[in-house]
Amino acid sequence: MIRKSSGPIWERRRLLLEVHRVCAGYGDLQVLWEVSLHLQAGEIVAVIGANGAGKTTLLRTIAGLLRPTAGHIALAGTRLERLPPHRIVQGGVVRVPEGRKIFPRLTVLENLELGAYLPAAKRQRRQSLEWVFGLFPRLKERRRQLAGTLSGGEQQMLAIGRALMARPRLLMLDEPSLGLAPLLVQEIFAIIRDINRDGVTILLVEQHVFHALRLAHRGYVLENGRIVLEGKAEALLANEHVKTAYLGL
């Protein structure tokens, strides 16, 4: 049984990210339709949805890679939707992209160092590195190796570690379990919980609905670019629609 870290009440009440009626897409193709969601500081929030529902598009929009055609996005009150991607990372919103997107011909250590590319993160490089190596001892063993030679699970760890090097306030994970063996999925999810306990708010996008909702405090269900359900994770796990559509019960 995965225990949830709920943190003190006052912390849970702090609104960190607000996505308000956001529409976005690619050219003429609208993918997101008035999507609204929010995260309190300290929370783990899961967004679940089928293939093509728009989960990656949502994270890319928050990260500033896509500009919303309507709606707004705010981080602790600061509007994000017109900032370029590097400014959003600077603000503390860091994404682990779908498919990892590590730098294959740089070493593990260089990948991590680039995670702390921006000046504020760079100043904390050494402490951050210790933190990441503490969470992922295997990365420490392999730090001189080219990232492209790592196994799939290790690459995922590197992608998460690289994001942590930026000292995120909000960590956005895009299907961290993609293509991993079940045992590794468990391991990654346990580490995500540890990261949350270290004070990082987490927005998790997943197709492994059961695991994701067991880990998260709250969740949203995204279908065809619209939020169709939201609520406490336990409530979603017990929801009839979620059960039939996502849990195969």
């Binding site: 990372v89 994404r95 992209p97 997107k101 730098f103 680039l114 590319y117 992608a159 690289r162 930026a166």
Partner: peptide, 24 residues
Amino acid sequence: DVGKAIRAVSQEREGALAVGINIQ
């Protein structure tokens, strides 16, 4: 660091964006 950022962009654009490298 800047040199590595240049190589990072050439190897994995999306990853470079994710770590906050100003691609432009």
